[in-house]
Amino acid sequence: MSLRIVVTVKYVPDATGDRHFADDLTVDRDDVDGLLSELDEYAVEQALQISENSDDDVEVTVLTVGPEDAKDALRKALSMGADKAIHVEDDDLHGTDALGTSLVLAKAIEKAGYDLVVSGMASTDGTMGVVPALLAERLGVPQVTLLSEVSVEDGTVKGRRDGDAASEQLEASLPAVVSVTDQSGEARYPSFKGIMAAKKKPVESWDLSDLDLEAEQVGLEGAWTKVDSAAERPARTAGTIVKDEGEGGKQLAEFLASQKFI
């Protein structure tokens, strides 16, 4: 038996950098350093663990849709231990929304061949958390999402989803789309050996024509939502800061009372 896992990873602007918008109101990806979304490291980690715990012949492919630099995210995932990588890059992809991204990812996943897709819980820039559900809808396979625990055995994926009202045990047969949360377990650091080995691993590049997609289906033109304005949130007016010299608790209570909270 063999198991083909495709992990979707996004290259995002560093959250600790000064993120902002470009003139066309898309996320500015030039001025802030990019990196593999931290939340997708958890997806790579779980894919590798599924692979390590399996008796089957497992192949882990990492897939990204993104600009030239997004190769860095793939390299990082390869140095963690993934086997190969696919980079979907095309000038016409600039400004693609979540629905469009899910279309490109679904086409690429189908072309690559898969039994299991593993995604992160959300991208750290868009933070929508909808792409995994959209992939399941497009691929017509079960969605087993937001898992804090996941395992695969005999063609079945099982996991635990910690929701607001309850913690649920889920089960579905493969092929399926899974997403994992940051509660699923610390992601490994690439080892020196891993980093060296990654340099020799194959990275395929596909563009829209490789996926039988037209430019109008994606990009800013193909987006079904439109951002009309983006404004920096006004800095909060400087507050009062006091040093506790025995009266800090009382002073704070006085402030809360003045604001009618007490």
């Binding site: 909060r236 507050g239 009062t240 800061i241 006091v242 040093k243 506790d244 025995g246 800090g248 608790g249 009382k250 002073q251 704070l252 209570a253 402030f255 809360l256 604001q259 007490i262």
Partner: peptide, 24 residues
Amino acid sequence: IFDLVDYGVVGDLFDVVPALTEEI
């Protein structure tokens, strides 16, 4: 966090928080 606050107390929470609770 102090860049965001309307009111901030620089101090040990083990002193300030119980005192605040008592006062409330």
